Simulated scan of single mutants.
Amino acid sequence: MKTRTMMKRPGLWAGLLALALLQGCATGPNPRDPFEPFNRSVTRFNDGLDEAIVKPVAQAYQGVVPSPVRTGVNNFFGNLSDVWSFVNNVLQAKPQAAADSFMRVSVNTLIGLGGVLDWATPMGIERHREDFGKTLGRWGVATGPYLVLPVLGPSTVRDTAALVVDTKGDLVMQVDHVPTRNSLYVLRAVDLRASLLRAGEVLDGAALDKYSFTRDAYLQRRGAAVEPNGDEERYDLPETPPPARAK
Score class of each variant (00 low, 15 high):
residue 4 R to D: 15
residue 7 M to L: 13
residue 17 L to S: 09
residue 18 A to D: 15
residue 18 A to S: 13
residue 18 A to Q: 11
residue 25 C to P: 14
residue 28 G to Y: 01
residue 30 N to D: 14
residue 31 P to M: 03
residue 34 P to I: 05
residue 42 V to S: 14
residue 44 R to E: 12
residue 48 G to E: 12
residue 54 V to T: 02
residue 58 A to N: 03
residue 62 Q to C: 04
residue 63 G to H: 03
residue 73 V to F: 00
residue 77 F to T: 01
residue 81 S to D: 06
residue 87 V to A: 08
residue 93 A to F: 03
residue 104 R to A: 03
residue 106 S to A: 15
residue 108 N to M: 01
residue 115 G to V: 02
residue 119 W to K: 08
residue 119 W to I: 14
residue 121 T to G: 09
residue 125 I to Q: 15
residue 136 L to P: 13
residue 136 L to E: 06
residue 140 G to E: 11
residue 140 G to M: 08
residue 141 V to M: 10
residue 143 T to S: 15
residue 145 P to N: 05
residue 145 P to Y: 01
residue 150 P to A: 03
residue 154 P to D: 13
residue 157 V to Q: 02
residue 158 R to G: 05
residue 168 K to R: 10
residue 174 Q to C: 09
residue 178 V to K: 01
residue 188 R to K: 13
residue 189 A to F: 07
residue 190 V to C: 04
residue 194 A to C: 13
residue 195 S to Y: 12
residue 198 R to E: 15
residue 201 E to P: 03
residue 205 G to I: 12
residue 206 A to L: 07
residue 207 A to L: 01
residue 210 K to S: 07
residue 218 Y to F: 14
residue 218 Y to I: 07
residue 223 G to L: 08
residue 224 A to R: 03
residue 224 A to I: 02
residue 225 A to K: 00
residue 226 V to W: 00
residue 226 V to P: 02
residue 227 E to P: 04
residue 227 E to Y: 05
residue 227 E to N: 12
residue 227 E to W: 00
residue 228 P to I: 10
residue 228 P to L: 04
residue 231 D to Q: 05
residue 231 D to F: 01
residue 234 R to Y: 04
residue 234 R to F: 12
residue 236 D to A: 09
residue 238 P to V: 09
residue 239 E to A: 12
residue 240 T to G: 14
residue 241 P to A: 01
residue 241 P to H: 02
residue 244 A to W: 00
residue 245 R to E: 12
